[in-house]
Design a binder for these strands. Structure first.
Lengths: 211, 211, 211, 211
DNA sequence: TATGAATGAGACTTCATTCAT
DNA sequence: AATGAATGAAGTCTCATTCAT
């Protein structure tokens, strides 16, 4: 009995008890499909295969559960192994990064996190800000760091590397991301993504490569 | 007396009775601030200074009211006089367009329509699609037409003008739009906007201008 | 102008201005189709081709309008020329009456008045009572009077003529009225109605005819 | 502990949790008093002494709650032990049945189910049909079966036993049911009911008994 | 008189949250 | 810890009625 109780305590106190993860998995799906308001705790409980009461054992309220998911999303994003090894040549690095980034955005359900957070950014500004800082801005910074290294070694001639990083990322989305997220087009094909990324890379280098 | 009667006739039958406009104005504010789900008809009625019942005299339901706002938004967008006179030189045209476009996106409450529609595009795909086609895609096309004219006259060397148009528009958002829409930064300053647009124009011309 | 006003006054003050009749006609249809609660004043106004406001010029409220219809219904019922001429022979009279009564009940929309009043009899007992007295009970009484005449002349041997009248009327409904009113069967065929009425008459005479 | 858990399981999963019955009891009263449209879920909740939300835990919507009551009513009807033992003599059987049937119809609140269903049969035909089939028609059939048995053994001479069954049931209502249901008279006295049933039986046998 | 715009009370229903077990 | 029954606030929408013209 004592053993059991200890076990129980461990489960909830640890960040990653299996129940907790189970809830997060179910909740993510529901939140991303239906949005913050569209997702009901009942639906989440069903998706996670736990009772509604159990949700409140692990999370104070709906909002806390949502933020926990974004937290997790941020961690996963951070772990996506963009290869920013400064030793790699710029063109290859940009193309690889662009491809990974675009796949992330346009995978089915991929735009959902962005969309979902965006939707409530006005009502819950902290959530929006944190998501931007942890996920989006962080990636810009990592690319910017890479660019700075190549500015330093004379490959590139860039004044504002943060801006340049953002520019490249925006270029990768050209003609693809908005139609996708507005449901005006399905996930783009591999060929089209390659074309767009090649074009983005060409344009970027035309502007910033030292000749 | 005759004048009064005419006034009466105008009220609901015309597309733009003053009550209707009054409701739309109140509703836009509430929808844009709180999102589709977050906005309640009660709140909208209060913001529009009419009774809840009156909302339903002019609009069949919450959804119809929302779409009417987007309709209106689309019209306004269409009326923004982007100057795409083919006779104007490319650099000026792009800068002017970029500035107008960016002001539209980043004006206080300006990004809200995009955000709000994006948020519900998953659950109401038609709404998303229509908004994309009427507002976003239309602007891309108008810019693309302009570019084609200058390809034709030999100023520019562009393979895919639709992609190029989209690229320029994305470049204008670089480093500004996402922070703004995620509430991670206030509306950007005029100076910063000019810088970003100048940089976008430079990059665009570096890639596409015939030398 | 004075003439017009006088005319106007006449219209409403008279029990049967054409507008009033127009409203009653529209309202009857709606009330009978949808029931008292199901009928909305808006629907009634549309059916009567007048404005909602006009309804309230002629009737104090929904309830008064409903009662006015029942009043009218009662009058019409009273005018249905059941032939209770004491000189006619009993069998023919019963069959003719039975047929007329059954057609009245089972005509499309015929059960509706009964049904509609029954529905609100619990909430508006006066309405139910009045309808019963004016329409249903009155018919029983007229038939009972006829029977009394034939008891007096020795054709029939009946103790309680009111009961007998009611019995004959119930017999006419056997196997037809309930299925019809519960929508479990369409209006019965002429043949079937004749059969049922013949059987009712046979049974009635078997019990009450002096042999 | 085990007992408690079992109890838990019973609560909603069983057809007859006590809460469910509590709701049905409150709802029946309100529905029968006010009709389907007149009854509000709030009133029902109050009558059942539960919260409005709880109603929706047990029943999908107002309509489902209403149908559950009719279902229950049908079961009760089915359980009324009309004694149709073919061995009993016809006169006694008819009188006993007539009395039980009439008490059922005219008991305070007893006619209400019929009235309430009849009232909405036009707008909800399925409900009407089902109620007719389950409650009214079924009783007719049971009586008809009994009559057939006595036709077979030569006691009765009936052509159409279904019609005859219906005729007897209608005769039992004569002079009693309509005044009762239109609130034009209170529940009839025992004496009067006996008189009416005796008269009905006499008439029935005068027509159908083999002499 | 006739209109129809406007209202606000109230209907049904959903859902985040609590609590006894 | 886990459950799920129960709640009540709040949401969308309808409709009888009023009132200025």
């Amino acid at each position: 009995m004592v053993a059991v109780d200890r076990e129980h305590l461990r489960l909830v106190s640890e960040e990653d008890s299996s129940k907790r993860r189970q809830i997060l998995d179910g909740a993510r799906k529901v939140f991303m499909d239906l949005g913050f308001d569209g997702a009901s705790m009942g639906e989440i409980a069903r998706a996670a295969a736990v009772s509604k009461g159990t949700l409140y054992v692990y999370f104070a309220d709906k909002c806390a559960l949502f933020e926990a998911i974004l937290e997790q999303e941020a961690l996963q994003h951070g772990q996506v192994a963009f290869n920013f090894d400064p030793a790699r040549d710029v063109e290859t690095t940009l193309k690889d990064f662009g491809s990974a980034y675009l796949h992330l955005l346009c995978r089915p359900g991929g735009g959902s996190a962005i969309r979902t957070v965006m939707a409530i950014a006005e009502r819950m500004p902290d959530v929006g800000r944190r998501y931007y800082a942890r996920v989006l801005d962080k990636t810009v910074n990592r690319l910017a760091e890479y660019l700075k290294a190549h500015v330093a070694c004379g490959d590139l001639n860039i004044d504002d590397c943060d801006l340049a990083a953002s520019q490249f990322m925006e270029l990768c989305k050209a003609s693809l991301f908005l139609p996708f997220i507005f449901q005006a087009a399905p996930s783009p094909s591999e060929e089209r993504m390659t074309e767009v990324i090649d074009s983005a890379t060409r344009m970027f280098l035309a502007a910033y490569r030292v000749k």
